[in-house]
Design a protein around this nucleic acid. Structure first.
Length: 352
DNA sequence: CCGTCCCGCCACTCT
DNA sequence: AGAGTGGCGGGACGG
């Protein structure tokens, strides 16, 4: 809003605008670039240069997109484009995994299941939602590889676990702070939480640009929180994202990541979508695929919903390993119920 | 002031 | 050894 057209400053350097560089916007652009027929592979360098960003940022995008099935790493520098149509399956898988792992282990190795015996051991102590409980001390005692340590903290895995948080509990609204604490399990400290939250911001930005989640405020505490939307957007295409609130970020409405460096590096003009200089025909090529994944809550009536909620709560209440998590879960359930009945009353027609 | 989150250093991993 | 990845947190932005 405040910086859609950077005024040419006297020095000739362009004004830096944070929003133009956000991960969410970058994600929209990325999808705009590749979400079309005929795309099979995505090259990191190609993406970086066409989007006008550094490789480092592409890794961020690609890692979370991989978590939701849109891409699969093929070789170094190369990803296989699977498309938005793969999202429902990926989410379903995450959901299953989340419930199944509740009392077992969490996925530390995304792809190859177990080519390394060691890998499995460390997983066994973590419940559904933590990345890893007390990773460090376990590493010391078990002499774990650094690569495992690293993997556990990967943005991709964090994305998956963050999504599981929504899919496998009934809390469809979460503050990043709480999410971080849950994901860290017993091991959370203010410092660790802060770091985790930073990563969750990154993830949340790209997930909201894809309409997976939406930023709101907790009804009671007024604290910022994210609400799960599922794949409510009909097309699932990032460029269809339309935010009505004018004061809200509008990812996907601006198609360039013009590279006005915040500092250091020289200002540089970058054009997106190279040659034609026009926005690519973003065409959602797989609406049907996403259809089953529209949130079932959209159309169900409210009486049933409240009951369902109770049932779901008792059926799927996660078996948290510690009291803090249980409490948090209960807290969210209560808050959600309160919020829901409140909203339900205000919405007699059942549109919601 | 504080929530947000971009940037890029540099550790780690892969070839 | 060099290239590719990506964790991480300092500190800038913006409401």
């Amino acid at each position: 809003m405040s910086c859609q057209s950077p005024p040419p400053s006297a020095s000739g350097s362009t004004t830096y605008c944070r929003k133009q560089k956000s991960l969410g916007l970058l994600c929209s652009n990325f999808l705009g670039l590749y979400n079309r027929d005929g795309i099979e592979t995505v090259g990191l360098d190609d993406a970086a240069s066409r989007l006008g960003v550094e490789r480092r940022r592409i890794y961020d995008i690609v890692n979370v997109l991989e978590s939701v099935g849109v891409l699969v790493r093929k070789a170094k520098n190369t990803y296989h484009w699977k498309g938005l149509g793969s999202i429902p399956k990926a989410l379903e898988k995450l959901k299953e995994e989340g419930f199944r792992n509740n009392d077992e282990q969490i996925d530390v190795k995304p792809e190859k299941v177990s080519d390394d015996e060691e890998d499995e051991k460390i997983s066994n102590h973590s419940g559904l939602l933590h990345d890893k409980v007390d990773v460090d001390s376990m590493h010391k005692t078990q002499g774990l590889l650094k690569s495992e340590n690293r993997k556990e903290k990967s943005l991709g895995l964090l994305t998956k676990n963050f999504i599981k948080l929504f899919l496998c509990t009934n809390s469809d609204m979460l503050s990043l702070d709480d999410a971080a604490k849950i994901l860290l399990g017993d091991a959370h400290t203010p410092l660790l939480t802060r770091t985790k939250v930073r990563r969750l911001y990154d993830i949340a930005n790209v997930l909201s640009s894809m309409n997976f989640i939406e930023k709101t405020h907790h009804p009671e505490t007024r604290k910022p929180a994210f609400r799960w939307l599922g794949m409510r957007s009909q097309t699932g295409s990032a460029n269809v994202v339309v935010h009505k609130d004018s004061n809200k970020r509008a990812f996907g409405t601006e198609l360039t990541n013009i590279s006005f460096k915040r500092s250091k590096l020289q200002d540089q003009e970058v054009k997106l979508f190279d040659v034609q200089g026009q926005r690519p025909p973003v065409k959602p090529n797989s609406n049907q695929g996403l259809e089953p994944f529209r949130h079932s809550e959209n159309e169900s009536n409210k009486v049933n919903k409240t009951q369902d909620l109770e049932n779901l709560a008792s059926n799927f209440r996660p078996q948290y390993h510690n009291q803090a998590l249980r409490d948090l879960f209960v807290h969210y359930m209560d808050a959600w119920k309160a919020w829901y009945s409140e909203v339900a009353e205000m919405d007699p027609i059942g549109v919601l």
